[in-house]
Write a protein that binds this DNA or RNA. Sequence first.
DNA 1: TGCTCATATGAATATATTATCATACAACAT
DNA 2: ATGTTGTATGATAATATATTCATATGAGCA
Lengths: 120, 120
Amino acid sequence: MENKCKCDCYCLYKDIVDIAKNSIKKIKIFDNMYTFFKTFADVTRLKIICALDEVGSMCVCDIAVALDMTKSAISHQLKFLKENKLIKYQKKGKEIFYSLADNHVKDIFELGLNHLQEID
Amino acid sequence: MENKCKCDCYCLYKDIVDIAKNSIKKIKIFDNMYTFFKTFADVTRLKIICALDEVGSMCVCDIAVALDMTKSAISHQLKFLKENKLIKYQKKGKEIFYSLADNHVKDIFELGLNHLQEID
DNA sequence: TGCTCATATGAATATATTATCATACAACAT
DNA sequence: ATGTTGTATGATAATATATTCATATGAGCA
């Protein structure tokens, strides 16, 4: 039957399903989007963002101390954040200072904060 | 030494570290926050949100057809969304219709969309 | 040059997450 | 009652992720 898909389902409301399907198809950036949100879906990364948001820029070592974690763990997470263009950095001698890339990061962070404060 | 922590780090800029530490401590909802953002950090859940956003409300079966996935997989994800209060539902006979819980979900989704369209 | 410190990174381990599979339950039709 | 359909769920297997560990690189200094 036409309205039966490989997934063992009978389609009940075909027109609605078609609208939903088209809507999903239109957004070709789900992969990027999920990677973007994944950034905020980790306590360590949230804390790094929070710290950088508060003090502007910090070196790897200080972030590690502030979060009470190893420098290696922080470095791995900074790499993730860097690859997803959420932070930028500036070299000063041996040290490398990281800071938030733009206001979107702050916006998202604060929107999440507001949402949680409202339902709580 | 006072400025050496268990994590093999030497604290370089103590005042900055203290500010960051306090800022992190103030936010006691990192756990909730990361769970909230985790919702958006999965392609399946993003698609469900996208579909519900577009057509208002859908039953489990139709969501499964629209996403071309099994009903079981969808049901598990709906449970996750339900537990985190991002969707609500209404029973009609055998069917259960799911819809987005409030505008925050839509807001976050669209903010992510905007962010990605700008950097791209 | 050799040493120390700041940072980066590959591999391995530990943990978390997702989809599948089997099954259960509830509503409806016959 | 029995069978069918829509949904839910526990257990498992497959996959992804985070941290640790060992090691590497690179800058500054003695």
